[in-house]
C-alpha cells in the first residue's frame, strides 16, 4: 500500500489538476476555453516532471508547451473561424462508440499496468544533473541532435511555405 508522504500528496494534487484540465477541455463549449484548460494540463505535467527529478525538462515543458504551443494554437484559432461553437448531438452514435472504445482501451491498459510486477528500484537521483544531460546530448547523442536541428529547419521552412498565400500565377 502507498504510504502518505509529501511526494504522494504532491503527485495526487498535480495529477488531479492534469486530468481535470483535460476533462474540462472535453466539456468546454468555446474553443478558446479548451486551449486554456489544456495549457493548464501542460503546466501540471511540468510539476509532475519536477516530482520525477527532471527539473530541466519541467522548464522546457513550461517554455514549449504552456508558452509556445498554446500561443500557436491560439493564433490558429484566432486566424480561422472560431465564433461557431461545438455543435451538440450531431452524431451521438459516433460519440458513444468512441467513448466505449476508448474506455475499453483504458481498462485493458490499467488492468495490465496494475498486474505487472514492476521493480521497486530507483535510480540514483542525487546524480541527476543538467550538466550530465548537456554532456550526453552533445557527446553521445550528437548525431540525433544534428538530425533534429535539420528537421526543425525543414519544418520551419515548410510551415512558412504552406501558410503563405499562393501567388496568382
Amino acid at each position: 500500500m502507498i504510504e502518505m508522504n509529501g511526494e504522494f500528496i504532491a503527485f495526487l494534487i498535480l495529477s488531479i489538476m492534469a486530468i481535470g484540465g483535460a476533462v474540462f477541455m472535453l466539456n468546454f463549449v468555446r474553443v478558446v476555453h479548451m486551449v486554456l484548460s489544456l495549457a493548464f494540463t501542460m503546466l501540471s505535467i511540468a510539476g509532475i516532471y519536477v516530482l520525477l527529478n527532471a527539473e530541466f525538462l519541467a522548464a522546457i515543458q513550461v517554455l514549449i508547451y504552456t508558452g509556445a504551443v498554446s500561443i500557436l494554437m491560439l493564433f490558429g484559432i484566432m486566424l480561422t473561424r472560431h465564433r461557431d461553437q461545438e455543435a451538440e448531438g450531431v452524431r451521438p452514435w459516433h460519440k458513444f462508440f468512441s467513448f466505449v472504445g476508448v474506455a475499453a482501451f483504458l481498462g485493458i491498459l490499467l488492468h495490465t499496468l496494475y498486474r505487472t510486477p514492476f521493480t521497486e528500484e530507483t535510480a540514483d537521483v542525487g546524480r541527476f544533473s543538467v550538466d550530465w544531460l548537456g554532456e550526453t546530448v552533445f557527446k553521445q547523442y550528437v548525431i540525433p541532435f544534428e538530425a533534429v536541428s535539420v528537421l526543425l529547419l525543414v519544418a520551419l521552412v515548410g510551415a512558412v511555405i504552406l501558410a503563405r498565400k499562393e501567388s496568382k500565377s
Binding site: 502507498i2 511526494e7 504522494f8 503527485f11 495529477s15 492534469a18 486530468i19 483535460a22 476533462v23 477541455m25 472535453l26 474553443v31 479548451m34 486551449v35 494540463t41 505535467i45 509532475i48 516530482l51 520525477l52 494554437m73 490558429g76 484559432i77 480561422t80 461545438e86 455543435a87 450531431v90 459516433h94 460519440k95 468512441s98 467513448f99 472504445g101 476508448v102 474506455a103 482501451f105 483504458l106 491498459l109 490499467l110 499496468l113 496494475y114 505487472t116 514492476f118 521497486e120
Partner: peptide, 29 residues
C-alpha cells in the same frame, strides 16, 4: 512512489486525448 501511478496517469491522459481526437470537430482542438 511506485512507478505504476505515473504510468496510470500517462494512460489516463492518453485516453482523454484519444477521445478528443476521435470526437472533436474543430481541427485546432
Amino acid at each position: 512512489m511506485p512507478v505504476t501511478s505515473y504510468l496510470a496517469l500517462g494512460a489516463i491522459l492518453f485516453s482523454v486525448g484519444l477521445y478528443g481526437v476521435l470526437t472533436k470537430r474543430n481541427a485546432v482542438v
